[in-house]
Design a protein around this nucleic acid. Structure first.
Lengths: 210, 210
DNA sequence: GACCCTATCGGGAAATACCCTATTGAATCC
DNA sequence: GGATTCAATAGGGTATTTCCCGATAGGGTC
C-alpha cells in the first residue's frame, strides 16, 4: 500500500512495483485517516509511507500503525535529506528509509529487504546511526534542526510552508495552544529571538532543503 | 521531456503521459545542464519542469530555454503552494503551472492546453492573476512588486531581511503605525492574505534578488 | 477644482506571541 | 526500580501585533 499526498508520485511507485512479478499494489492513500481506513479493509504486507501527508506527518502514521497493526512492515520515503528523517523513521517503527532522489532500483531493493523483515538504509545513513550509537555523539556536528522533536519539526515545516498557527492546529487536529507551545520550543532550540525570525528561518529552510 | 530530480516522480509522469495515445516521452533529465544537453539532441514539443532541481531553480532553466529555444513550450510543476510559483513561472516563460497535489487528469489537461499554445493555471491562480491586473491595464505587464511605492518597497525589503515592524519603524524614523499601514498596502497590492504570506513573499523576493 | 496617489499617523477590536504552569506516558539514568 | 528527563498536549494571562477603520496634507493630472 502506498501513502503519499502527490497522485503523480503514487503513479510512479505503482508503475515500479507492478513491474515486478511478485509484487502488487493493493491500495493508495493520501492521508493518515484514509490509510488507516484502507488498512482495516485490506491489510497489506508492506506500506510505503511518505513523510509529509495532507493531515500531518507520516511519522505519526507510522507510530499509529505500529501500535495498532504491528505485523505490517513499513518503508519510509521522503524527498528530504535523509539525515533528518531516516533515524526518526526507524524510531517510529519503520524498517527502512529511501530518499526520492535515489534510483528506482534502490526502492525495489528496499521493498524486498523490508518484506524479509530486515532493515534497509543507505550506507551513509547506516554509518551515521552507528556513529551516533557508539562513542561520544556530541551534538556539535548535529544541525540544530535535528534536535527538534518529531512534532516540532512538523510544525516548523508547516510554518515554512506559510501556514499560520491556527491553520496548523486545524490540519494536525491540535489546540492552537499546543502549536504555540511547539513554536516556543522551536524558538528556544534554534535560538531564535521572535516570531519573525522563526518564520524567516522556517521559510528559508523549506525553500532550501530540496 | 520531463525535468525533475526525483526518479520516482519522473516515472509517474511517464506512466501518465504514455497512457495517452498521442503523447510520448522523448527524454528525462534531473538537472539544468542535463536538460539543455538533451534539448540539443532531441528538441521536444513540450517540457514539464519541476521548480526545484539539483543544480538550481527550474525558473532559471525556463528562462534559459525561452531565450535559446523559444519554440519549446513549457509547463511548470511544483509541490509548493502555487501562490508562490505560478506567476513567477509564467513570467519566466512557461505557459502553465500544475501543483503536484492536483489530480493526474489536471496534468494531462494542462499538457494538451499548453501544447495548443494556451495558458493553463488552476482556477484559483487564474483569479489571483486577474485580480491583480484589473483596474490597471497599463500596469498589467508589470510585476506587482513594481507597483509598490518607494516607501512600500523599502518596507517590503526590510520585511524580507527579517526585520520586525517595530525595528523597521525605528530604522526609517517612522511611527510603527505608519509601517503597519505600508504593510497593509503591500498586502493589498500583492493580493496577500495575511502577515505570514507577506513575510514569505518578502523573504523569497530578497533571496531571488541576489 | 475634482480626483487620485503617496506619505504619514491614530483608534480599537481581534488575533497572536510570549511566558508559566501542568498532566500523562515513555524513555533513560544511576 | 524509583528518580528524572523528555515528548506531546494544552490552559491562563498579559503584552504585542495584526488588521481594518479612518484622517490629514502634499503632489500630480486632466
Amino acid at each position: 500500500m502506498i501513502v503519499d499526498d502527490h497522485p503523480i508520485v503514487r503513479e510512479g511507485y505503482s508503475r515500479l512495483i507492478e513491474h515486478q512479478d511478485d509484487l502488487e499494489v493493493c491500495g493508495q492513500a493520501d492521508s493518515k485517516v484514509d490509510a488507516i481506513r484502507q488498512i482495516m479493509e485490506h491489510p497489506p504486507d508492506l506500506m510505503i509511507i511518505d513523510i509529509s501527508l495532507k493531515d500531518g506527518s507520516g511519522l505519526e502514521l507510522i507510530k499509529d500503525i505500529k501500535a495498532q497493526f504491528s505485523q505490517i512492515k513499513m518503508l519510509t520515503v521522503s524527498m528530504h535529506d535523509e539525515t533528518l528523517f531516516a533515524e526518526r523513521s526507524l524510531r517510529a517503527g519503520a524498517l527502512g528509509f529511501v530518499n526520492k532522489q535515489q534510483a528506482p532500483e534502490q526502492l525495489i531493493k528496499a521493498i524486498y529487504q523490508v518484506l524479509k523483515g530486515k532493515v534497509f538504509l543507505s550506507p551513509e545513513a547506516t554509518e551515521r546511526m552507528i556513529c551516533r550509537s557508539i562513542g561520544s555523539d556530541n551534538y556539535s556536528d548535529q544541525s540544530p534542526i535535528e534536535r527538534l522533536s518529531d512534532r516540532e519539526l512538523e510544525v516548523f515545516e508547516q510554518i515554512g510552508e506559510g501556514e499560520t498557527t491556527r491553520s496548523i492546529a486545524q490540519k494536525l487536529n491540535l489546540s492552537a495552544k499546543t502549536v504555540e507551545t511547539y513554536r516556543e520550543n522551536i524558538k528556544h532550540k534554534l535560538n531564535l529571538e521572535n516570531a519573525t525570525a522563526l518564520t524567516r528561518h522556517a521559510i528559508q529552510w523549506v525553500l532550501e532543503k530540496n
